[in-house]
Design a protein around this nucleic acid. Structure first.
Lengths: 316, 316
DNA sequence: TTGAAAGCGCTAACAC
DNA sequence: GTGTTAGCGCTTTCAA
């Protein structure tokens, strides 16, 4: 892995290292002809800049970290993909980090900070220590999809989403509607459950909720429900992935007469077989808001309190 | 974004920068008590190493690049996820790069090289210029899932896969079987088609093939087939994603009596609704072989010709 | 067992 | 317009 450096280019074209550097950066105080010559020679020699050296010297990397808790969740790929467009526009790159926790910790923060990112977008929230550490480093951070008191965040109107999808199930004649949440920690799962609860109560129906994380998986919940003879004619799941799993497991058991609902309208980006009722939102806008908030923080890092913006949701 | 450096730590604990560096690296020529003290102080001060500085000095990054052509394809996430375990074991991290081309080019290579990766794993092949450039840089490279004359590669037995899945469809009584390939460039799509062809010919059946890329999408192909009254009772698609799209589109048109087959057994890692006949393989082993080949190249970069290893496939 | 000094490749400040 | 110099934070000699 041998690489050409500015020094090498400088030597062969007879200019100083500095001059070559400035020429390749298109500085205005270098003669146009010189620039052209230097650029051509650099190209011919196969010069590629050492980012690490540049980062070290400049003190910033034009690189954003994205932290998620599951590389396999296509939801993250979808949102990341929307964010990516915006990053490219602004001349940034991104690196994906991955943690196995429910809330990320100081070791995650250390790894991210060590990588010299200029900012961080998180699909999950920090624990107390990580929060303190991030604040100490003053690393521009945006939490995506989770409420936060400590950092900027972009969230969905989860309560509304839970409410309207439940209302739809009720309107279509369902009465025994079960909510399967993701876990009992993250606010988005709880809020969707609250919306569900409100709709059920307003219609004098008895709410029944389960938690996929507690029971191990959506499959387990469904199996247990059937085993325990819990009456249900519809299931509202935390998200579409849960909904598809539930629908699939029910099909395996020969049960086809239930309404299944989810959240995220994931079929808009990833086409699967089968349809579920779902709650949608403008993912492009959702992603863009997060990126723009982050860039605002990067631009002026010492400004004000954390902001929270809400992306609207609608029935699909 | 203010950070603590070795110098800062050195100052507060009274040792030299060098000594602190070595202590934090657990060098054996530093007194155990000194190490403990230094480590504790570094921790208290919130020291996090600057990777860029370390990379610049050491000349290597313990970082692998992964290049794909579509952030949304969950297949890449699945394989990346398997590779990730191995990377962690070996003390490496990875960065994902993304190109919009069918074959990656020199600009992709430049971006990757600039990022100081120690090696590269590609889900797609290089064009001629990129091949030359990679060779010039002598960057350890493994191509995953595509044949290569120029670099190490790990491929599936695509011919066999196409053959056995077609044979299964025939055995189950299907006669008018259509193959929908991804495109006419990549060898894996062509090889699966060859396997399909062989099975059809052996059974004196008439092969009919389409290309999703040419027609824009799998959906388009299906629509066209129906519109043109092309007789078919089964469709073998390049992969499971194609198969699910086809099944879904057919369902939308009220057609449920066709056999749909794919490739990759993607339901093993990502559970969707609905089942398709498919060709499986040990993805863990597939991913691991690629990573291990890459590490072998990194360890001894000047050894021999490119190797190609084949991962076996089986019916699911 | 520890410290001093050099230098990785780059860019910013300043001199010419 | 171009060159000189310094230094980002780290690790690797080499010396003490």
């Amino acid at each position: 892995m041998k690489r050409v450096t500015l020094k090498d280019v400088a030597k062969t074209c007879g200019y100083s290292v500095n001059c070559v550097s400035r020429a390749l950066m298109d500085a205005d105080d270098i003669a146009t002809t010189t620039k052209q010559r230097i650029k051509q020679i650099a190209e011919e020699m196969g010069y590629v800049p050492h980012m690490s050296a540049s980062i070290l010297r400049k003190g910033n990397s034009n690189r954003i970290g994205i932290l998620c808790d599951n590389l396999l969740n296509p939801f993250y790929s979808v949102i990341t993909n929307y964010m990516q467009w915006r990053f490219v526009e602004k001349g940034y790159t991104f690196v994906t980090f991955y943690t196995t926790r429910q809330l990320f910790g100081t070791d995650d923060v250390k790894q991210i900070v060590a990588s010299d990112v200029d900012g961080l977008i998180c699909f999950l929230g920090p624990d107390a220590d990580a929060t303190a550490m991030l604040k100490k480093f003053n690393l521009p951070t945006v939490i995506l999809g989770r409420k936060s008191d400590d950092f900027d965040s972009v969230v969905l109107d989860n309560f509304k989403g839970g409410y309207i999808i439940t209302q739809r199930l009720i309107d279509s004649g369902r009465r025994n509607i079960v909510y399967i949440g993701e876990n009992n920690i993250i606010d988005c799962s709880l809020d969707r459950g609250e919306g569900y609860l409100k709709a059920m109560k307003e219609n004098n129906l008895t709410p029944v909720s389960f938690c996929a994380y507690e029971r191990g998986s959506y499959e387990n919940v469904v199996e247990q429900m059937v085993k325990d003879n819990i009456p249900f004619d519809a299931i509202f799941c935390f998200n579409d992935f849960g909904a598809y799993v539930v629908m699939d497991r029910l099909a395996e058991m020969g049960i086809y007469d239930k309404s299944i609902a989810g959240f995220d309208e994931i079929r808009k980006e990833l086409r699967f077989y089968g349809k579920v009722d779902t709650v949608g939102y403008d993912k492009q806008s959702f992603a863009q808001k997060a990126v723009d908030m982050l860039f605002e923080r990067i631009r002026r890092s010492n400004i004000g309190q954390p902001k929270m913006v809400v992306e609207d949701v609608y029935l699909v």
